[in-house]
Design a protein around this nucleic acid. Sequence first.
DNA 1: CTCCTAATCAGGAATTATTCTTATTCGAGG
DNA 2: CCTCGAATAAGAATAATTCCTGATTAGGAG
Lengths: 133, 133
Amino acid sequence: MAEKQHRMTRQRQIILETVKGLKTHPTADEIFGLVRKRLPRISLGTVYRNLDILTEQGIIRKLDTAGQQKRFDGDVSPHYHVKCVKCGKIDDLYFELPQPSSEWSEKTSFQILEYNVELLGICPQCQKGPSHH
Amino acid sequence: MAEKQHRMTRQRQIILETVKGLKTHPTADEIFGLVRKRLPRISLGTVYRNLDILTEQGIIRKLDTAGQQKRFDGDVSPHYHVKCVKCGKIDDLYFELPQPSSEWSEKTSFQILEYNVELLGICPQCQKGPSHH
DNA sequence: CTCCTAATCAGGAATTATTCTTATTCGAGG
DNA sequence: CCTCGAATAAGAATAATTCCTGATTAGGAG
Ligand SMILES: [Mn+2]
Ligand SMILES: [Mn+2]
Ligand SMILES: [Zn+2]
Ligand SMILES: [Zn+2]
């Protein structure tokens, strides 16, 4: 069973560069907007397809945060995220959170594979005052 | 600024009874299917609207799990969830987690409010073998 | 009990994010 | 160069959820 070949197209290259060049955890359509400046004829479907391929390859990360729109991350090093409950902004957290204990697994009949942790908070900007629209 | 009045309609009552009567963390359309047996003329929009109202009132819980479809929980006591990556089934986990520590807030500019943990695993049924469709 | 009216309803259209389809183009190994 | 499977653009399709409209109703006032 040979692995599926992946060609490096101009589209895929620029999508990758764009995601790697951001620290903002962009949505697919934000990436689309940026890539479009360099490749005006690219389609949204191409962006989605390549984001998924790059995620499968482990070159970028697709965040499974709650919410309607998926977000992507060019930083695949292990870290957590905190989301602003007011404006939805996402920031990185490079410290350790409570490690899953075996005790957790003992309390369920499920075979545990992984743990998702998402912190919720208020970003500096939204702390200053109610967002003025 | 008077609070918005909420009437207890037959629809809302039966939706509430249905959610409270399940331990399965149903989606809106699953609830719709069940409620429909007792109220054949109810609309899906009414189910969504009432689930949101009941959630606002804190009578039920809307789970912010990753994934496309939202799920609801009639158990509002504090607990966590584990989701089967094969069939999507959700189970309850009643253990304690440490409170967000001030140490966390020092390492980010966000004001940390809370954190969600979602475990991913394989349910007993799916462990037995590949789901036979 | 009867009235009144804001809250709610049913039905269906609209929105939003994502995936799928199809005919055409292209990257890269030979 | 040639070849061919992978990839693309364009747009249709899907799926979950929200919104809109005109009709209905819960429940407090009288
Ligand atoms: Mn990140
Ligand atoms: Mn639960
Ligand atoms: Zn914010
Ligand atoms: Zn399962």
